[in-house]
Amino acid sequence: MARSRFSITRLPGFGLIAVLTFVMLYLPIIILVVFSFNAGVSQSRWDGFSLQWYQAAFNNAQVRDVSLRSLWLAVTAASIATMLATLAALGTTRVGRFPGQTMIYALINQPLMVPEIVTGIALLIFVAAIKVQTGYTGMGYLVAAHTAFCIPFAYLPIRARLETLDNALEAAAADLYASPIQAFRYITLPLMVPGILAGFMLGFVISLDTVVITEFVKSAGQDTLPTYMLGQLRRTVTPEMNAIATLFLALSLIVVTAFFLITRTRGR
C-alpha cells in the first residue's frame, strides 16, 4: 500500500503495540478507581456510588500518616539516589576502563541482586545494632536504606543516556575555551536531563513500593503505606486502600499537569 508520506520514525505495528500496552497499564487502574467509589465493602460487586471510603480514609489518622510518610520518603530517597547516581554515572561512563570499575559496577547493582527479604533481615541486624549504640531511631535509617535500594534504578537509565551522548560535544566546548565546569553545566547536564528524569521517576516508584525492607528497618511510628498494607494482607484489605490509591493517582496527575504547564511556558 502506498503512503503519501514516508515517515522514517514509523515502524509497522509499533503504534498498535504501544497503544495496547497503555490500555493494559490503565485497565486495572480504572477498575481500582471505580471501586474506590463503591458503596459496599466488596472489591468485586458494585453496590452503588458513595464517597464513604474517602471519608473513612480522611478520618483515619493512621492512613493519613502512612500516606504522607510514604510520599515524603519516596521524594527524599529518590532525590538523594538520583544525585548520587548521576555523579557515579559521570564517574563510570565514557571515561575508558580504569581499575576497580567492574567492582563499582557490581557494588552499584548489588541491591538488585538480593531479594528484599534478605536485605531486610540483614539491615534489621545492622540497623538495630546502630540504634542500640546511638539511641537515634529517626527516619535516617529508612532514608538510607531506600536511597541505597533506589541507586541502581536511578543509575542504569542515567548511564544508558550518557553512553549514547557524543564526546565530541564536550570536546567542541573545550575547543571554544569553555572550562570543564562550564562544559558540564551547559552541554552535558542539559543533555543528561531525560536520563536523570527517568532515573528519578524509577527511584520514586521503587521507593513507594519498597515494603519488606521498610518493615524490618522502621522504628516505632514509622509505618509507610506498603507496610500498612502488608499488615492488612492477612485480614481484609478495605476499599479505603482503593481510595488512597486513587488520591495518589490524582496527585500524580497534578504533578504531571504542573510539569507540563511549566515546561510549556518555558518553551515559549
Binding site: T76, T137, G138, L142, Q232, T238
Partner: peptide, 29 residues
C-alpha cells in the same frame, strides 16, 4: 540535611517522652 529533616518528621515516637505509648500490633487489628 536529609537526616536532620527526617528526624523532625519521623521520630515523634522517641523514647522516654512523657505521656507516650508505642503499640506494636498486627495490622488492621
Amino acid at each position: 540535611a536529609g537526616w536532620a529533616s527526617a528526624a523532625l518528621l519521623g521520630s515523634t515516637a522517641l523514647a522516654n517522652a512523657e505521656g507516650m505509648l508505642n503499640l506494636y500490633n498486627w495490622g488492621n487489628y
